[in-house]
Simulated assay, not measured.
Amino acid sequence: MNDRMDDHPDDYAADHADDADERADGRAGDRADDRAEGIEALLGDPRARRWLIRGAAAVVALVAGLVLIDLRAGFTLAVLVVIADVVRVTRKSSSVPAWQKSSAAERRTEKQLKALERRGYLVLHARAVPRDDDGVSDGRIDHLVIGPSGVYAIDSEKWDKRLPVRTLSHLKLFHGPVNKKDRLDEARWEAEQASKILAGRVGFEVPVQPSVAIYGPSIPWKVMRVRDVDVYAGNRARAYLRRRPKILTDIDVQRIFQAADKALPPKYPV
């Protein structure tokens, strides 16, 4: 409307009645355009699309409940449909696309670590560990955690819950009959490589503690160090970090985080 008035001020002053009609038509057209743009924007937003789908499912559930039982049952069913979908999507959410699957152990640890951000912890997920000067990667740190209590390389593992987990003299870790020596050695090697890379970037020693968070079987201890690798139940990942003494300043945390972000590339580039 205002564009038309600016482009034709003489016509507007001379024929006010006709212009009023045009303004009304223009407002109606603008409203239609705004509605169209709004709908297009909604359809382009994944979160909005998800809520549109939820709404449609809720309406179907409401009608089904109303037809089969009564209004209250229909409304209850509609609410349950929306809640179930919200929970399902929340459980699948992750900053790493490769982890957006039904039961990724990495995603469960990621969710725990997010709650530590307000305590000054910074986290990089799914980072490749370069093996040589050419940047060839031979390993992956699921979660590199940098915070007041130090630097940690956490690997998340989903093991068969039917098989017990046990240790022998802090030197061996068994899952049922399987000796997990290779897995522990790999975790320790990844942490050692990260430590060397970060120290070279920041100019001071950066110890990186390796650990394995296990989901599935029951773990009969809180934290056990086996072959220099901390082993614990996956749901204890947050508790494992938050009660440790402070050894790094906020400035140190930022420096190490920035160095790690540049030196350790994402394992799954977007």
Rank of each mutant, 00 (worst) to 15 (best):
S103G: 09
P46T: 03
V87S: 05
F174H: 07
H175E: 05
E192K: 14
P207Y: 10
R183I: 01
P97H: 02
R91S: 08
P210A: 08
R244D: 07
G55S: 09
R72S: 12
D228V: 01
A237Y: 02
F257I: 03
R27Y: 13
E22G: 10
V151S: 03
E157D: 05
L80F: 11
A187D: 04
R108S: 12
A260D: 06
L171H: 11
A98H: 08
V229R: 09
P177M: 04
V151N: 06
A61W: 00
V136N: 15
R107C: 03
F204Y: 15
R188L: 14
I146Y: 10
A126H: 06
D15Q: 13
G120Y: 08
E205P: 02
S195N: 07
R31L: 14
E192Y: 09
P265R: 09
L66A: 08
V59P: 00
A191E: 03
L52W: 06
D261S: 14
R127Y: 08
D18G: 15
V206W: 07
K222I: 10
K181V: 06
G176L: 09
L68D: 05
A24K: 13
P46H: 04
R244C: 07
A13H: 10
A78Q: 02
R236T: 11
R243G: 14
A237G: 05
D85R: 12
P9T: 09
A126N: 15
A20V: 10
S102C: 00
G74K: 04
D155S: 13
D6R: 15
D250N: 12
G55V: 01
D11F: 15
R236P: 00
Y152M: 03
V145D: 04
F204E: 13
S211F: 02
D10W: 14
P148H: 04
R91N: 14
A126D: 15
D6A: 15
P177Q: 08
I247A: 07
S137K: 11
L80Y: 02
L116D: 01
R72F: 12
S102H: 07
L248R: 12
S93D: 11
E40M: 07
R118C: 04
I214T: 03
R91C: 07
A61D: 00
G135C: 13
D70T: 03
D133H: 13
A260N: 06
A153N: 04
A199L: 01
D138F: 13
W51N: 11
E40Y: 07
D252R: 09
E37C: 03
G150L: 06
K267L: 15
I141N: 05
V123C: 11
A260L: 07
R47M: 10
D250C: 01
K262Y: 08
R54S: 08
R131G: 15
K246F: 05
A58I: 02
N179H: 13
R119W: 07
A187Q: 02
I39H: 10
L171Q: 15
